[in-house]
């Protein structure tokens, strides 16, 4: 018999609001993303100066993961390579690609920036989360036109069934000009005591994604 998987926590960020499955809630005053994300970082006292070097996509995913994993040490619970990170979005790194492209448009002022270029890959956000939480497990980044809970649930279940992961951070981290949204799920076989929020299935995942913020 297959064990069911649980969503032991989630973090949703949209419209200058953040909410988690453990009742963290933050309503930002700022509307522009760079201001809002900085405000959120300060509000939760993150204390990770490298945050300011990240591009917008990484800041968004990093911060969602910070709140998702608050007071957790997955390394301790599942070993260094037990936790997978499976993410998706629609715009890959195009938000930063445009910034980089603008910087090479003028040959008379041609100084391509390595610290911008390095973020022109969507999987860098998984690198930032992995570095912060010392996670060495399975990594994959997919691109889909819209959030696809069916694919996500099927794929992550397969990873669990085949012992590729023992725990998984999965979700949607999208950043495109002014539009942004992140929803991350922490998926485990058993949620922490009294904290197993919901069974990890398409309906629950979609319900959380559709929460109004």
């Amino acid at each position: 018999m297959k064990e069911s998987l649980h969503i032991s926590n989630y973090c949703l960020i949209r419209n200058s609001h953040l909410i988690t499955g453990q009742d963290h809630f933050f309503a930002g005053k700022e509307t522009a993303f760079p201001d809002f994300i900085k405000e959120t970082y300060r509000h939760f006292n993150i204390g990770y100066p490298k945050f300011f070097k990240m591009d917008n996509l990484s800041k968004l995913g990093f911060l969602a993961a910070e709140l998702l994993l608050k007071d957790r040490d997955l390394n301790l619970d599942y070993g260094k390579d037990g936790t997978g990170i499976i993410l998706a979005n629609a715009s890959a790194s195009l938000d930063t690609d445009r910034i980089y492209q603008a910087s090479i448009a003028d040959r008379s002022n041609y100084f391509p920036s390595p610290s911008v270029f390095v973020y022109t890959l969507p999987n860098i956000v998984m690198g930032e989360i992995s570095i912060r939480h010392k996670l060495f497990g399975e990594n994959a980044f997919f691109i889909k036109q819209t959030f696809d809970p069916v694919f996500m649930v099927e794929y992550v279940k397969h990873l669990f069934e085949n012992q590729i992961v023992a725990c998984c951070i999965t979700g949607w981290v999208e950043m495109d000009s002014e539009r942004y949204e992140a929803v991350l799920f922490l998926v485990e076989k058993t949620g922490p005591l009294n904290n197993g929020i919901a069974i990890f299935d398409v309906r629950n995942v979609d319900d959380i994604y559709c929460l109004k913020l």
Partner: peptide
């Protein structure tokens, strides 16, 4: 075969 994709958790570049 079955394979695996991992992370270094070390540095982004």
């Amino acid at each position: 075969g079955r394979g695996f994709s991992s992370n270094d958790a070390n540095h982004i570049s």
